[in-house]
């Protein structure tokens, strides 16, 4: 474990806490893409298959349970909760996220480190996570004004993988037998997708104005 990865995990946790706070306290999911939440639940379900078979550390297991639990409960809230579901912006959250699932799965079948069920699903979860934010970014562009909690949620979600990139560079230089170009490639694509969001996020923060993504 290094400081970059720990910061990354805590930033990721922070994004989920911000989202749960928004949904649980103000009982609203306005501006949040259900498609992205469903993709993330799928990412965790396919990545943490080994949660009960491989024990790495208490931290690792606890965090996996938190990510699995929160991602599925957020999907449940947005689909089933009587009040929250009313604020779901169904008309704007129309990105066909199945268009993302299939190519990621096909790519994982072709481009993987080992052709086993677990490894292919794990690779699939990496590729899917890289593009899972797209429905949310599309929804942000369509939403007139983006509220602070939603903006902060997307910011923390984007920042966490950026810390992971630094962690991979750090591990590359400190553990000489460590290289995973598939993970790096997916991580770079994932972080690159946030670049324009980061630009508008910092601009709105600097000028102290409402966050607005150009359509």
């Amino acid at each position: 474990m290094n400081i970059f990865r720990l910061t990354g995990d805590l930033t990721h946790l922070m994004s989920i806490i911000v989202l749960l706070l928004k949904i649980h306290t103000i009982k609203s999911c306005a501006g949040i893409s259900l498609k992205t939440q469903e993709l993330y639940a799928l990412v965790f379900a396919t990545r943490y298959l080994d949660i009960f078979t491989t024990y790495i550390s208490l931290y690792n297991t606890v965090m996996k349970l938190i990510f699995l639990g929160t991602s599925f409960s957020i999907v449940w809230y947005m689909r089933r909760h009587k009040t929250v579901r009313l604020s779901y912006d169904k008309n704007n959250d129309t990105f066909r996220h199945y268009f993302l699932v299939l190519p990621c799965f096909l790519l994982a079948l072709v481009l993987n480190n080992r052709f086993t069920v677990r490894e292919v699903l794990w690779t699939f979860s990496l590729y899917l996570e890289a593009v899972a934010i797209i429905p949310q970014l599309v929804l942000l562009q369509r939403s007139k004004n983006v509220d602070n909690l939603t903006g902060n949620y997307v910011f923390f979600l984007g920042a966490y993988r950026g810390f992971y990139l630094i962690n991979w560079i750090y591990r590359y230089f400190t553990e000489n037998h460590y290289r995973r170009w598939i993970t790096w490639m997916a991580g770079i694509v994932q972080t690159a997708l946030y670049v324009d969001f980061f630009y508008y996020y910092f601009k709105s923060w600097k000028n102290n104005e409402k966050l607005k993504l150009p359509a």
Binding site: H12, H177, R180
Partner: peptide
């Protein structure tokens, strides 16, 4: 050398 299995990360 076999790649370190990255499964120790989240």
């Amino acid at each position: 050398v076999e790649d370190v299995d990255l499964k120790d990360e989240l």
